[in-house]
């Protein structure tokens, strides 16, 4: 961008450059800062560019949905009906009339608690097993085929077995979350550990880090980008699995809320619940991605 400007008047450029240090007294050049209003308007503009297009698309889809479902005899309610039917649920998510007759907040928080517990166990076990498989050739030979088979089993197929083992819905749901999300964490961690450059291992050897220090100071940071890829896939899968699992085990939870709404033909409530499930899944994904970004700062660049 600068090139043409320099080329057009090379003589003047050189002259001023040479003369400047000799003749001119110190000229204070305060960098001109853009006025605050300008900065804000730029920020608003940037936000608008990202927010407006999806809003337009959503509005169009809503309109389409409204038009399609407004006819008499349509099986699904249009958005206006959904809003009218679920107003109470939207504006009062905190009510609690005992049993499973609670606000959506309680259902969602129950589901999130199960996910948090199952996913945390999966993260710890996944990173530990992944490290083992990544580090030891024998562990990989022994365990990898097992993992490859087990990971293809659909989450819900585990549910009857875990119900038989735990004889209770709560731990069974948590187990299903765990077993669903642990595989991508294991596999990605193992790949990350296997890909640690020999240079880093040499450094650790020369400095004589013990195995524990090597794990904490070299392995985990070096494999962090891979680990977080696994964690991100895992959180998505566990949120997928929880809704299905809760439909079957019952009790408080967004999955059973949907099932219950279906049984009492409250289609609008199902749609509202789906909306929340989608938003929360999105937030969880962003959360792990953001965490990964903070933790792996600087790791990827050599």
């Amino acid at each position: 961008m600068n090139m043409p400007a320099i080329k057009t008047e090379p003589a003047t450029a050189i002259v001023t450059h040479a003369a400047a240090p000799v003749a001119t007294p110190v000229v204070t050049m305060t960098p001109k800062r853009p006025p605050r209003a300008e900065k804000y308007s730029k920020m608003v503009k940037d936000t608008a560019v990202r927010v407006v297009p999806p809003l337009i698309v959503i509005a169009l889809l809503m309109l389409f949905w409204e038009l399609v479902c407004q006819r008499a005899g349509s099986t699904l309610p249009p958005p206006s009906r959904v809003f009218k039917d679920t107003k109470e649920l939207i504006f009062d998510p905190f009510f609690d009339r005992g049993g499973i007759d609670k606000g959506l907040f309680w259902h969602l928080s129950a589901s999130l608690q199960r996910v948090a517990l199952g996913y945390s166990i999966a993260a710890i076990v996944g990173v530990a097993l992944g490290t083992l498989v990544g580090q030891s050739v024998w562990a990989m030979r022994g365990l990898d085929p097992l993992f490859q088979v087990l990971r293809t089993i659909p989450p819900l197929a585990w549910l009857p077995l875990s119900l038989a083992a735990f004889r209770d819905g709560q731990p069974s749901a948590i187990f299903v979350i765990f077993i669903t999300s642990v595989w991508p964490i294991i596999i990605n961690t193992a790949v990350g550990i296997r890909n640690i450059p020999q240079d880093y291992r040499n450094v650790a050897a020369v400095v004589q880090l013990n195995p524990l220090e090597f794990f904490g100071k070299i392995m985990i940071p070096a494999a962090a980008p891979y680990i977080f890829t696994g964690l991100r896939i895992g959180i998505g899968l566990s949120w997928l699995a929880i809704v299905a699992a809760e439909m079957l085990i019952g009790g408080v939870g967004i999955g059973f809320f949907i099932w219950d709404a279906w049984n009492s033909s409250h289609i609008s409530e199902i749609i509202l619940a789906l909306f929340y499930v989608g938003i929360i899944g999105f937030v969880l994904d962003r959360l792990i991605a953001g965490l990964g970004k903070i933790v792996t700062r600087g790791t990827s660049a050599g």
């Binding site: 240079d199 450094v203 070299i218 962090a224 700062r297 600087g298 990827s300």
Partner: peptide, 10 residues
């Protein structure tokens, strides 16, 4: 001192 510096990037 390694050829490619081998500093830990994190």
């Amino acid at each position: 001192v390694f050829q490619n510096h081998s500093l830990l990037p994190w």
